[in-house]
Write a protein that binds this DNA or RNA. Structure first.
Length: 821
DNA sequence: CGAGCCCGGGG
DNA sequence: GTGTACGGGCTCG
């Protein structure tokens, strides 16, 4: 029989000594299914200059000792291209995935070169079969009566792509927990989960809302359900998930927090969380370290939407912070509930009647997470289509790995074999390789009006394709002397034949052009272009990452010369464009790699456009200079203590009074609240031409600071203890405070976030670092806060306005403040 | 100045 | 799971 289904989660199992791929998904009628198919893992061995007869004899007898002996099943000779050279390889199939590293290692000890021995089995299968996750597939085979699965199992003889139709109506369940965290100590072994919020969206668009908690209080929340204790709450959670049967479970930082936390609590209470479609447990790695795990439920796609935003999507957001609050504000125009989460533990213990605000807050977080997931699903789907990777994996990857997987997919069509990943010593060598990056035009510190930004559209990708830059075309014998790279006469790239890397990149660029044309078409017909826009975005992002990939030490297709040449060409283009702009009497205030900032001055915008046209006329290939935008005002600051303008550090205000801040680093928790608030406010005021108010604001802040009026809460600096206290060789302020906490019988362990305030006195910072509770009569060190928090946050901004650091600081070291203040 | 350590997201 | 991020800033020594 034949079925069609969308596959969204992948796994493999060994059955009767054979390897099967497991594709979990959904039929078009919304029934869940698991489709399995036998497929052998394999790798390649190079057989040039190898005694093949001898090898023929040895391979069948080979058996590497392991729990399950690793064996070779069959082999086949095949012509492949390795870094531009056609060579003979044997494709060697083995009995199970983990046999690949075992057998290949053995063969390497015989002196053979082995390739593609670390390609994940699932990825290999998907690429070989040209099966795209999240799209409609067709399978021929039979249903089996597998009783070990929660869903129907279909054994396929053949699976193929049916269409590229998206799986766009998945059933999604967002999950968010609130935990008991007194003094900000997050410890899943000790502290219980207090409430769990679930926000679902089914295939018909119907929503589901639920908050479960285990302390009763009177309320009017219709989604709230009480249970007797944490154990019952976890059991209820299990029940709901099994009953709801979502395709996707999503959370915000749920890889690093919610799911491992739930897992740890469940383990403690000996509760099974067998959500998996094969009855397997929620897998949160070892479960102990919350930091960088990944949580998996077999057959349900776990999307930690934070990961996708941090790794991929966030790079194009204005916000510097990837907190749920800032990301939601920017993408959804909605915020988290404004609730003091630090008071939850206290409210739980002493004022349960006030818990309803936390339940609302909890549900709102789940709601925002769900919204982010549905909003970004088209984008994630498009990345899945281009790279062919399972969604689970791709959202957890950085750009380099995404690029590499895209290249690996294309490599199959070109009969190209992947070079091996570098080994440790090779990585070390590569890490020592350096090359010059983009050209940054040093700004003159100052405030500027009417800034126009122009930038080269996809500069690096268009340089790579226009100049055929790649490891296979580097210094070819056929093109010596014909053209060489600017600043690097020792490099040239083939001009006769497009090679693999620039070719697959060019395919991306051409595809994007197609997609963009399609967007215009659909738009003119009044159709929705969301998916096409997501596709265009994914292609652009991937294309832009090729250059970085070529210079990335972990890359299979690493090519230092290529990376060097790409930036060398880029510097050449931007410099000559700046020069031409100056010739046209434009004032250039800044430029970075692919952009130039012009002052409009007395000129009209049409003159800018004319200038762009002239530039574009001379550019090769797909290269193009574009208009990015107009900003009424911007500020460029100087390098600390110098006259020179700092590169990559400026703030602009757009026509809607929205700040675009680059390079100002104050979102971290080891900056005090007072410094963070001050910096943002000062930037905003200054760029709105309210310098007087900005100075006034600073003056007030400093005055309050000096007179001890600042709420010590705003002076708290937070630093985490990350290991056993005795193993610190360098005693920083946070370690010193932690040691004193121990003396006071306050528990401190790895994971504790130490809060401290710097108090008056002398000596090292750590000798004056006090617990907030040790601060009496606001005896904080206002000089420290002035010199290490307040001034560093705003000095460079005021310096631009003519108030140099010396003026600002003045005699502050003795008297606290200069005359100016 | 280099080495060592911590930042992010989450309560 | 055919595994284990990354790049940058601050303080101490």
């Amino acid at each position: 029989m034949q079925i069609r289904f969308y596959a969204y989660d992948f796994d493999y199992k060994i059955k009767d000594g054979q390897t099967y791929i497991y594709l979990y998904g959904k039929l078009e009628n919304n029934h869940k299914i698991c489709v399995i198919q036998q497929y052998n893992p394999y790798f390649y061995a190079k057989v040039e200059d190898v005694d093949k007869e001898e090898l023929e004899k040895r391979l069948p007898k080979l058996e590497v000792e392991a729990k399950e002996p690793a064996k070779v099943i069959k082999w086949q000779e095949i012509d492949k291209e390795l870094l531009g050279k056609k060579q003979k390889f044997w494709k060697i199939e083995v009995n199970y995935p983990k046999a690949v590293p075992l057998v290949s290692k053995e063969l390497e000890s015989w002196g053979l070169e082995c390739y593609e021995k670390d390609i994940l089995y699932v990825h290999r299968y998907l690429r070989d079969k040209a099966i795209t996750p999240m799209t409609l597939l067709e399978a021929d085979g039979e249903l089996t009566n597998d009783k070990h699965m929660r869903v129907a199992v279909f054994q396929a003889d053949e699976i193929k792509q049916f269409s590229k139709d998206n799986f766009n109506k998945p059933k999604i369940l967002a999950i968010d927990i609130e935990t008991y965290a007194k003094n900000k100590i997050i410890d899943p072994k000790k502290n219980p989960i207090l409430m769990v919020a679930l926000y679902g969206l089914d295939e018909q668009g119907k929503e589901y809302r639920k908050v479960i908690t285990w302390k009763r209080f009177s309320n009017k929340l219709n989604y709230l359900e009480f249970v007797s204790d944490e154990v019952e709450m976890l059991k209820k959670l299990r029940e709901i998930i099994l009953d709801y049967q979502p395709d996707i479970i999503t959370g915000y930082f749920s890889d690093g927090f919610d799911l491992p936390y739930i897992k740890t609590r469940a383990n403690k209470h000996k509760i099974k969380l067998d959500f998996g479609n094969d009855y397997s447990d929620l897998d949160s790695g070892s479960g102990n370290s919350l930091r960088e795990g990944r949580s998996r439920i077999k057959g349900i796609l776990h999307v930690d939407i934070f990961k996708f935003i941090r790794n991929v999507f966030g790079k194009d957001l204005r916000t510097d912070s990837y907190s749920l609050d800032s990301v939601s504000e920017e993408l959804l125009n909605q915020k988290k509930d404004d609730v003091k989460i630090s008071e939850l533990a206290n409210t739980w213990d002493n004022h349960p009647e006030k818990l309803d605000q936390y339940c609302k807050y909890n549900l709102q977080d789940a709601y925002l997470t769900l919204k982010l997931c549905t909003k970004l699903l088209p984008d994630m789907n498009e990345f899945a289509k281009i790279t062919g990777l399972p969604l689970f994996d791709l959202i957890r990857m950085g750009f380099s790995r995404l690029v590499e997987n895209y290249i690996l997919k294309r490599a199959l069509e070109y009969q190209v074999i992947a070079p091996n990943k570098p080994k440790k010593f090779e990585i070390e060598q590569r890490n020592e390789d350096t090359y010059q990056g983009g050209f940054v035009y040093e700004p003159t510190p100052g405030m500027y009006k009417d800034i126009v930004i122009l930038d080269f559209k996809s500069l690096y990708p268009t340089i790579i394709t226009s100049h055929n830059i790649g490891p296979e075309s580097l210094n070819c014998s056929c093109c010596k002397e014909t053209s060489s790279v600017p600043d690097h006469n020792e490099y040239w790239f083939c001009t006769k034949e497009k090679k693999f890397i620039p070719q697959v990149l060019e395919q991306l660029i051409l595809r994007r052009t197609d997609v963009k044309r399609l967007i215009e078409e659909e738009r003119s017909k009044g159709n929705d272009t969301k998916i096409l826009e997501a596709r265009s975005y994914a292609i652009k992002t991937l294309a832009n990452s090729f250059y970085g990939y070529l210079g990335f030490f972990g890359a299979r297709w690493y090519c230092l010369e290529c990376a060097r040449s790409t930036t060398a060409y880029a510097r050449n283009y931007i410099k000559s464009t700046i020069k031409k702009a100056k010739n046209k009497k434009f004032e250039v205030v800044y430029g970075d790699t692919d952009s130039l900032f012009l002052l409009l001055g007395e000129k009209h915008l049409t003159e800018v456009k004319e200038f762009m046209n002239e530039i574009n006329f001379d550019l090769p290939g797909h290269m193009e200079l574009e208009y990015e935008g107009h900003y009424p005002q911007g500020i460029f600051v100087a390098i600390k203590g110098k006259e020179k303008g700092a590169k990559k550090k400026y703030a602009l205000i757009d026509e809607n009074d929205k700040l675009k801040i680059t390079g100002f680093e104050t979102v971290r928790r080891n900056w005090s609240k007072i410094a963070k608030e001050l910096q943002k406010e000062v930037l905003q005021l200054v760029l709105e031409d309210k310098t007087e108010e900005a100075i006034e604001y600073l003056r007030e802040t400093v005055k309050d600071l000096k007179s001890g009026k600042i709420d010590p809460e705003k002076l708290i600096i937070k630093t985490q203890i990350t290991k056993d206290l005795s193993s610190y060789s360098s005693i920083g302020p946070h370690v010193a405070v932690a040691l004193r906490m121990l003396e006071q019988n306050i528990p401190v362990s790895a994971g504790t976030v130490v809060e401290y305030i710097i108090a008056k006195g002398s000596g090292l910072v750590r000798e004056r670092a006090k617990l907030p509770s040790e601060i009496k009569d606001n005896n904080y060190d206002s000089d420290y806060y002035l010199n290490h928090q307040i001034l560093p946050a705003v000095a460079e901004i005021f310096a631009v306005l003519g108030y140099s650091e010396e003026e600002l600081v003045g005699e502050s070291k003795q008297t606290g403040l200069g005359n100016f203040l």
